[in-house]
Structure formats: structure tokens, C-alpha cells
Nucleic acid binder design. Structure first.
Lengths: 131, 131
DNA sequence: GAACAAATGTTATGACATTACATATCCTTG
DNA sequence: CAAGGATATGTAATGTCATAACATTTGTTC
């Protein structure tokens, strides 16, 4: 398994898992002050490792981080995110057809893809929120 | 046509068009000092309008902006970006199948999409670059 | 237990973006 | 044309996100 996290990694992971929504690195830091964390780098370093391990995803359009919805599948496949701008919740999904099409484009253009981001911002339709 | 840009909008547009690659707001600002621009907000305001008009796209994974490759089609359709991490060049493309799949997912999940980001980071295979 | 790799702690700084407020310009419409 | 509204501008200050550089500690391996 992947459970050999260091202290800081475990703290950050726990914070993100408990949040149920994306958090910024600085928000994570604020929530971990009492646990002894004091500098942004401590959080960013943990986030880097957790992201490498596939336990955390970075949402580019939010400059924030979210715990992977599939805690055990450190799949590095193509993941798409649907981000609700009302309630902040994120849904994670994969679509093989989308992946095939993007891979196909890349192949046709001799483009060697390293990382692909798909983020849909909108309204999840499930939240009755603060207006 | 769309040619009724204000002074600041025109300056920012010209800078971005001439660059042939994405620029950060602050880089644009630096290049427009001689034209009288002095504050980030002047650039950000112009970028907001140009983005609304579809003349400029924001690249979320880069925190940067690029002139639309199709200057006259202010299509607000789904656009994907392939960003070369070597040479910085960006290619812009659309894929109806990808759009249909993502629209389909949204429909099935009652998710009302407002804006979708697709960005592929990698190596364009066309650049022999600085190593 | 020496030596190396990995993780941590800390300070400072760099990079990206917005708030708040004042002023100016343009464009209606009576 | 004057009045009023909408849009664009100018400016300073501040807020938010991220990394560089360096010192120290911990963990592993032989």
C-alpha cells in the first residue's frame, strides 16, 4: 500500500480528505498551525509528494488541491474534474473516448503529452446555496 | 467587427498578438511601460474584456494569456490547448467528439457547465531547444 | 557508526491577482 | 446642451499563490 507517508504528508492528506472540497495550500497551512506547521513550503512539499503518489490532485483553474476521490487507485490516467462554483464540491471522472481523442490529436501532431488538465467549471445542480 | 477596442485593450492585444506565445499579465505590463501603463490592473482589465470578446484565452495551467489563434472567430466553443514546455508555443484545437462526451457527462449529472478548460502540457516535437 | 539520501525547518523573496477609491470619457436622452 | 448613467482609466495598497536558498535533522544502508 501507500500508507508510508511522512508526518507532514499525513497531516496534509488528513486535512484534504476531511475537507471534502478543494483547499488552497495556505488554507491547509492555517489548519495545521496547531500541529506545528509554520511555513508554506512545508505544505507545498507535502502536496508535491502526495500529487506524485496520485493521492491528491491539483486543480489548475482554482490554484487549489483536492484529495483524490479514488483513494486506492493511484491511477495516473486522464481525469476530468467538474467543479461547482456554488458549493465548491468537485466531481472526478474519466472518459476513455475523450482520452482516445486527445491521444489521437497528440499522435497526429507529434506532440508528446506529459500532463493533461480537464476542468469543467459550473453549477452542480445539487446544491441549494448562499445567494 | 470587433475592432472597437479601447486604447489599453488595443495595446494589450497588440503585445499578445506579437508575442506568438503566452505572456503573463506582468510581462505584458513590462512591455507596455513605455506606452504609459503603470499598474497591473490596467492590464488585467484589458485582458478581462479581450477574453470576454474571445480574442484572448487564459491558460490556467500557466497563469498566462495568449492571443486567439483564430482572430476572427470569436467562437465560444470548447477549445483545447497543447502547450509545449520546451519552446512555449501553444496550439489551439477543437474536437467535437470531446465536446459531445463532456456535454454528455454534464447532462447526465445535471451539471451546468459554464467554462471548460482543456490543456495538454508536453513537448511539441517541433522545437530543438535550449537544454 | 559513517555516509548518503530524504525530509524538515526557517527566512526571505518572487509571481500572480484584486480591492478600494478617485477621475475621466463617452453616450444617451430629455 | 445639460444631466445622468455606463464604461474606461489611473493609482496605491494589499491579498494570494509559490519558490529559492540555506541550515538541520532523520532514516537507511553498508
Amino acid at each position: 500500500m501507500s500508507a508510508d507517508l511522512t508526518r507532514n504528508q499525513a497531516l496534509v492528506m488528513k486535512t484534504l480528505s476531511g475537507a471534502g472540497a478543494p483547499l488552497s495550500a495556505y488554507t491547509i497551512l492555517d489548519r495545521l498551525r496547531d500541529d506545528g506547521l509554520r511555513a508554506p513550503l512545508q505544505v507545498y512539499r507535502a502536496l508535491d509528494k502526495l500529487t506524485e503518489m496520485g493521492l491528491v490532485h491539483r486543480l489548475e483553474s482554482l490554484n487549489a488541491f483536492v484529495a483524490c476521490a479514488h483513494p486506492n487507485c493511484h491511477e495516473q490516467e486522464l481525469i476530468a474534474f467538474a467543479i461547482c462554483e456554488n458549493c465548491g464540491k468537485v466531481e472526478e471522472f474519466s472518459d476513455q473516448v475523450v482520452k482516445d481523442r486527445l491521444d489521437g490529436w497528440a499522435r497526429n501532431h507529434r506532440f508528446k503529452a506529459a500532463k493533461t488538465t480537464i476542468e469543467i467549471r459550473g453549477d452542480c445542480g445539487r446544491c441549494e446555496v448562499k445567494s
